[in-house]
Design a protein around this nucleic acid. Structure first.
Ligand SMILES: [Mn+2]
Ligand SMILES: [Mn+2]
Ligand SMILES: [Zn+2]
Ligand SMILES: [Zn+2]
Lengths: 142, 142
DNA sequence: TCATGTATTTAGAATAAGTCTAAAGTAAGA
DNA sequence: TCTTACTTTAGACTTATTCTAAATACATGA
């Protein structure tokens, strides 16, 4: 809590969007800001209700979906599929993995290096019931 | 029809359902048979259109969904999530992984032991663009 | 400043996957 | 046979997401 306004050192959502060639409209900026500060891997609906009150003007469902798709195509965010019927979004675009707590439904990030010895040792704060490796790429013939 | 009925040596879908405590109705049996003989990881719609003509009586959408859910709860099949908005089904219930060919959309099974050294070496018929590890389990606190 | 064009947002309609409902069919036991 | 429980069915419903067409905002140049 300082008496003076120190200049922000954190790279702003606005800068990030500009650097990816996405025009930083107010709607896009608040959505990006929300995703950048949360660790909860929210759905589109969750983004909408979280961000709606943060804007002076109303935010439409269509704009939330448009923006999420735009940000995804621009490489600012990633989709996360953990359960049928709902897509979650993640502003952590580093190569990492996810751990679903089946009790709480929370999805936490697992850094890549943790998974070297897969399924074996994740630290004993995690009780692994199972895991799934999903590859994306190309196979020969078929 | 044949002169003699030879005894089936392949463990039948009917036997499998019985062994899992699921009453083998004609609809359930054809759906299970279809899933057991394919390697394509079909969606509910694909199951419906593939199996509809194989039954003398019409097969309803509701029954396909009911049966897929029943078989999943009985441990006869598993869900596979690879893309938003569609659930795929897999009668291979061994612990294994999946490789999505981004060109063709085909999903092929990768046996567990192949993934020991994850992402590294899958055999050079696979070009890995990326992979995702999805854990299921429980974490401490939050 | 105005005109015009282009991108963005919006409400609500449309679509698509999946679930639910209520009625009809099936099988088995008493 | 009567009863009961289970299963299937058509179609209504729900929910997530996309589409459409109109309204806004923004930029650029005359
Ligand atoms: Mn949602
Ligand atoms: Mn489908
Ligand atoms: Zn994440
Ligand atoms: Zn499989």
């Amino acid at each position: 809590m300082t008496a003076h306004n120190h200049t922000e050192q954190i790279p702003s959502a606005e800068q990030l969007l500009l650097s990816r060639g996405v025009k930083p409209t107010p709607q896009r900026v608040v959505i990006a800001e929300y995703l950048l500060q949360t660790e909860s891997h929210p759905t589109a609906d969750e983004v909408l209700s979280a961000v709606a009150q943060a804007l002076p003007v109303a935010l439409s469902r269509a704009t939330v979906y448009n923006t999420l798709n735009t940000l995804k195509e621009a490489g600012v965010i990633k989709e996360v599929l953990t359960e049928p019927g709902r897509v979650r979004y993640d502003a952590n675009i580093t190569h990492h993995h996810h751990f679903v707590d089946v009790k709480t439904g929370k999805i936490v990030d697992i850094p890549s290096d943790k998974v070297e010895a897969i399924g074996k040792l994740l630290g004993d704060q995690y009780k692994v019931h199972g895991f799934q490796v999903l590859f994306y790429g190309e196979v020969e013939s078929g």
